[in-house]
Structures are given as C-alpha cells and as structure tokens.
Amino acid sequence: MKIGFIGAGNMGGAILGGLVSSGYRGDELLVYDKDTARLMQLFEDCGIIKASSAEDVVKQSDVVILAVKPQIMPSVLPSLAAVFAHRRSLVISIAAGKTLAWIEELIGSGLPLVRVMPNIAAKVGQGMAAFCSNGNVTQSHKKTVRMIFESVGQIIELDEHLFPAYTAIAGCSPAFTLLYIDALAQAGLRYGIPKPAALTIAAQSVLGTTKLLQEAGEHPRALADQVCSPGGTTIEGVCALQEKGFEHAVLEAVRASYEKDMKL
C-alpha cells in the first residue's frame, strides 16, 4: 500500500518518521513538498520517494495525507479534484479546524475522507490523535488510519461534533502541561535547585505519573490519595492548590480554548 503525503512540514515529517520507525518501507512513501531541501532531507533520513507534484502523489497513492497548512488548501486542492475522483484513494486531512464538509467542498464528495487531529507529542512518538470520517469510509479504511497514527502514539475515533472539546484537552493541553512543569521548576529554583536540574525533576515526575496512571487502571483521585499521607506535605500542597483555584483555572483554560475553536 503506497501512502502519499502532500506537504511534509513538522507534523507530516513526524508521521513519516513514525511510519519508517515502525517498519514501513520508505519506497512505499511518496512525498511532495515545495521545499526541495526538506524533500531531500526526508529522502536521506527515511528513504522516501520524492514526487514531482501534488498531482503525482494523488495519481500514485492508495492513501493521500493532506499535510499542508489549512490556509493553503483552497489554492491547492480544487485543481486535484478530478484526479481524486478518478483515483478514489483514501484521503486523510490533518488540517486543524477544517471539517469534513469543508474539505469535501474543495475535493468533491463521494471520496472516502477522514479527518485526523494529532497533537505535538507525535514528534516523539507519544502523540494523541482523534479521527472522524464520512460515510464512504469502510472498516478497512479505519484500520489503515489507526495503523498510520499508532506509529506516532495513540488514536481514537470521535464524532466530529466533539472535536472542539478534543482539541481543547489534547491539542492545547501540551501547552498547559508545559506551563505547569515550568512552574514546578521555578519553585525548585526558588528553593535552591538549579533550573536545569529542576526542569529534569519536574518533567520526569510528570512523565512517570502519567505512566503510572495509564498502567494502574485507577482513578486519578485514588492515586493522588495514595500519595497524600495524613497531615503530610503532599496534602498540604494539594489543599493550597485547591484554595488558589487550580482546578477552576484548568476548567476555564479548556473552556476558553473550546470557545475559541468553535469560532474558527
């Protein structure tokens, strides 16, 4: 199965790297990008086939991943509609905020079309993605989508109307989490730990806690209770977080991100 990429920026490159790392052959990956230096780098790193045009990608691929920026799509996709209609490949869009209906207006209806929202952690193979699809997508198509995006993390299927909420908690939360990690490191610096060491401590603590949550199969509150000894240091800090509105701030951050997404 030949997988084609139109666009090979940060996210497209991450997916390409994940596929190759998981065992997919580079000569089954056809890539077009206007940045010829980028194409050459991917050829050297992943062994991909360099396409001469976006049309060439569509003509030769069983799966086409649209990895160009959303604002570029209206100038790129309409000219490919006839080729898409003839080839009838599975089309996967990773354009942020662009609905299935919006994409169909550009490339035509009747094609199997999937919308995927990955997040930045795909760059290190630990991404979180969600997908939705139109009525032309089969279970076999969905299996292909899962195969591609499981090479860079995890993926779940969601109804498209839930994508704004998903974006707020998966797409935006890496920034929230990084701010939390930096705040922990700042606190460490305040009490004498050098900033680089404090960042290492905070980042590994968050990483380890996430792994514990994923593997323990327990509710986050139950695990938190296990750390809080009666009258101890942890419960004191937890109470301070609650008194200062930590949970409310998180809920408000998600609300603000959700409402902004709904306006896009």
Rank of each mutant, 00 (worst) to 15 (best):
E247W: 07
P112S: 08
S21M: 06
L39Q: 10
C228L: 03
L207M: 12
V114Y: 09
G7P: 01
S21T: 12
L19K: 12
A175I: 07
V76Q: 00
T209K: 05
L213Q: 02
R88F: 07
K69I: 04
M262T: 10
C228T: 06
L213M: 10
A85G: 15
A170F: 06
T36W: 00
A168W: 04
M128R: 09
S257I: 12
T36F: 05
L77N: 05
S173K: 05
I3W: 05
Q226K: 13
K211E: 13
E160K: 02
G7A: 01
A253T: 05
P70W: 01
A203Y: 09
L39R: 06
D45K: 01
T167P: 05
G171N: 06
D35L: 03
G153D: 09
A175V: 07
L111P: 15
F5P: 09
Y32S: 00
Y24M: 14
G13M: 08
A96T: 14
N119T: 12
C239E: 10
V137F: 03
C228F: 04
C228A: 13
R221N: 07
G171R: 03
V76C: 00
I49P: 02
V238W: 10
V31E: 09
Y166F: 15
E218N: 09
R25N: 05
E55N: 12
A185D: 00
G23R: 04
A67H: 10
A165T: 08
I48C: 03
M11P: 08
L241F: 15
M128L: 12
V152G: 00
E150V: 12
G47F: 08
C239K: 05
L106K: 12
A198V: 09
I3D: 11
V124I: 14
I181Y: 03
I193A: 07
F246T: 04
A216M: 07
